[in-house]
Design a protein around this nucleic acid. Sequence first.
DNA 1: CGGATTTGACCAGCGC
DNA 2: GCGCTGGTCAAATCCG
Length: 475
Amino acid sequence: MDKGHLLDASSPRPLACFLDNHSRRMSADDPGGGRGRRSVEVDFFSGHNKTTSRVAGSPEPPPIKEEDLTINMQLLPAATQKGEEDDDDRASASGSQQQLQAELGRMNEENQRLRGMLAQVTASYQALQMHLMALMQQQPRKQEQFLLGLGPVAEAAEQPASNSSTEVGRSSSKEKEDSPDAAGGGPSSSKQALPWAAEGRQLADQQASMRKARVSVRARSEAPIIADGCQWRKYGQKMAKGNPCPRAYYRCTMANACPVRKQVQRCAEDRSILITTYEGTHNHPLPPAAMAMASTTSAAASMLLSGSMPSADNSFLARAVLPSCSSSSSMATISASAPFPTVTLDLTHGPPGGAAARPHAPPSFHMPPLPLYNQSKFSGLHMSSPQNSSDATRPPIGIGLADADTVTAAAAAITADPNFTVALAAAITSIIGGGAGQQQQQHHGQAAAGVNANNNNNNVTSSSNNTATTNSDTQ
DNA sequence: CGGATTTGACCAGCGC
DNA sequence: GCGCTGGTCAAATCCG
């Protein structure tokens, strides 16, 4: 593999550009990415996120400020003054002035309402931030308590003090310990444990889900692999059942013990579609080129993690939240009932050029356009936890049903579950604001613990949080 | 010669 | 228990 080519983040290419031109750039003589050949990659997540998430050249939409919601009243005197200049129109001006005042009243009312909404959103955001911080502080402690002998014996016993995860084990149990999430706590001398057994187990389950959460990206491409900014090494290839195209396995080689892997396979039904499935979170600083994908994958993992709520809430929330963006043709589907909970980002839809033609358009959640391999149980628009497999057989929930009551009730339900809110915010922020730069990355870094996503584009060094994670995992 | 890829073999999980 | 399948390993091979 041409390493330099894989890491070619120096020539960021917006997705739109690629999908418009990829057929011209492709060398289709070696679609399998043969040994030593020059690999051609799709640069979906090029280094400069801003180019990938909106039309090139269009300015970044400014954040909504409180002042923006204030009605500019300077227009009123001007209109009045003009009325005074014309004595004949004075009577009509008086009438129009009343109309203007009535309008003013309405606008003031709306202004107050918008201010209230803004205040509410701001308060909610701050509350969520506080909650997240509290969770992140609790997590290492609970983790170490779990590792002290309350979890499965084998898993606890396999936790090496040295954390020498350089060699990825063959067994899945060994693989689990390689996760940066699992390494967050590290060995401890604490001896208080038993009261935390149930909680520790729940946490372990949560983290197991997080480890196994996958993000699948579907995109039209003749290239054998997409350039996501990371460095990958191919370690295997298999023929998957039901698909004549082989599935290639890659692992991240940007750090020795990075647990992130990806599978690349062509869609059997449309071989121009490349399906790249990511698993795990990076335990090392990422180059800017890789931030978008890392953000997406970990945010999706967070989102899936939030799916551990009761099934009724899942379907309800999905129905309430998802339809609001169902009109878009760019897609993200959620499947927690598959062998591994999976989020699929579908970049293959829309007009020629697909989502790339409107890279700034927010991806939405929708019905899966095509059945995905390894997601045979997927049944449509829903979020379901693995333990609630009954949801998988539920008929697809209708899209576009979000009436006002539904939205209101959904807002209440979301508010009642901070975990979901945080994860959802992270996912949406990541997906929509893929190019929103630092704010997005800061969001993500806070929402998806253990992921090196809070490096901004200008600074690839680890933050304190990520450094802790990296150290505990690799040392 | 070092590093990446290929490919057959091995292992674990799952369903029957 | 057996077979199937997915995932991984590691020796062999290839390439720059």
